[in-house]
Amino acid sequence: MLRFILKRLLWGIPVLWSVATITFIIMHIVPGGPFDAEKQLPPEIKANIEEKYHLDKPFLTQYLLYMGNLLKGDLGPSYKYLGRSVNDVIADTFPVSIQLGVIAFILSLVLGTGSGLLSAASREKGIWMDKTSMFMAISGVSIPHFVLAALLILVLSQTFHLFPPALWEGWEYTILPAISLAAAPAAYMARLMRSTLSDVLREDYIRTCHAKGLSTRIILFKHALKNAVPPLITFSGPLFAGLITGSFIIEYIFSIPGMGKYFVTAVINRDYPLIMGVTLIYAVLIVLANLVVDLLYFVVDPRVRRK
């Protein structure tokens, strides 16, 4: 077990290295640099700035310098937020995105598995319940989250004044963005849950349970549910990583000072170190999330454990 974890963590190193290198190369191939503003800087000043950030050095030297600092955990200075290091910017914005992401994740998990379960369980008895919840689910995966966010703002905040339409100053500010973020993954999970669960419910061992005279509720929760969980875990891992790194669209619409918003501004501004920093955090989270997914498989599925 420990060997497996170690092996996977070690495998993460070349992945991260490749992500860092590819991102670094792409950023430098793309024409234009961080200091080509609309307003032309005098050549001497530009040269000074470029010297300060080592942008005048050959590409390979820049790469080695960056990688050297990275090994020390230093993500470098931000080019656009003067006087602040990338570590500072991330330390300020990442917690906001994590907070919103975790709430959205929990919301989608509860809503998604709940309605998926309800719908699979009620397939025989209450067709309408299955139909309604599946219609909600297909609408949920079809509505763009910016449209949903706009509708929520329009109805819940402009018409009924229930929640604030933007900013990030307390719990009531998290509701609308969290719903907008959670809708699509919740809908997807509901569909996933329903389809795997209804496959499981057709299996022989479930018929045996029925024959033994177990109640539908016990069959569903104690026997069927366990086998419907693995696909959900596979989906949840990367979802969690994506949600806590922050969604640019949602942070943009609701003016939330999270990491997603800074990331896109950084790409547009060519703030190389900030782009690298956020990309690497995302990559680390994806690698970790996939590891956790595999470990959870060990926990929930004895068949995997035996292999």
């Binding site: 992945v15 991260l16 490749s18 992500v19 590819i22 991102t23 792409i26 950023m27 191939i29 793309v30 024409p31 234009g32 790194t245 640019f248 990331f263 896109v264 790409v267 547009i268 782009i275 956020v278 990309t279 995302y282 990559a283 994806i286 690698v287």
Partner: peptide
């Protein structure tokens, strides 16, 4: 498949924006 893993770990938005810049 390892190449695919790496591509998966790079945020889509970054690739999109950089490609459209070029």
């Amino acid at each position: 498949m390892r190449i695919v893993d790496v591509l998966f770990a790079i945020p889509d938005l970054l690739l999109i924006i950089l490609i459209t810049v070029v």
